[in-house]
């Protein structure tokens, strides 16, 4: 997912009216998938999050809407923690001051379930 970007230059000062469009590759999570027995189950796993931005900006890292941490202007960052989150979870970097989305990515769900309970009987119609 990408944010819409627009910039305006006034004199020699560049004012960001919206965040640049950074590709998803700038924010990497590992693992990319969390395997759970069924999709209602929360994912509990060690997550590594790494980001590299084209320029140094102050950012906050969010898990869905929960802020995990904020950092002063820097181009790179790394965050490791034990996640316990309902999937799918969106991890996003937002500008620390404006709250605008910089880049986001998703921790996706894979279930182990290979079967499910049948809900109907063959005799339901009769």
């Amino acid at each position: 997912m990408m944010s819409v970007a627009a910039t305006a230059v006034i004199g020699s000062v560049m004012i960001m009216t919206a965040m640049p469009a950074y590709s998803d590759e700038l924010l990497e999570i590992s693992p990319q998938y969390c395997v759970v027995e069924n999709k209602e189950q929360a994912c509990t796993t060690e997550v590594n999050i790494r980001w590299t931005l084209p320029e140094a900006i102050p950012v906050c890292l969010l898990e869905n809407k929960r802020t995990l941490g904020c950092w002063p202007a820097q181009q790179q960052g790394l965050w490791q923690y034990k996640a316990e989150v309902q999937l799918p979870a969106i991890y996003s970097l937002t500008h620390a001051h404006t709250g605008e989305l910089v880049v986001d990515t998703q921790l996706e769900l894979q279930t182990l379930r290979s079967s499910r309970r049948r809900l109907r009987s063959v005799w339901s119609f009769f």
């Binding site: 069924n38 999709k39 209602e40 279930t111 379930r113 079967s115 499910r116 049948r118 809900l119 109907r120 009987s121 063959v122 339901s124 119609f125």
Partner: peptide, 22 residues
């Protein structure tokens, strides 16, 4: 006749979409 996915299913005259499957 039945065919189930995690969410959708077709089972003997009924087509369903399961929101909650606990």
């Amino acid at each position: 006749i039945a065919y189930y996915t995690d969410t959708w299913y077709l089972d003997n005259n009924q087509l369903g979409y399961t929101f909650i499957n606990q």
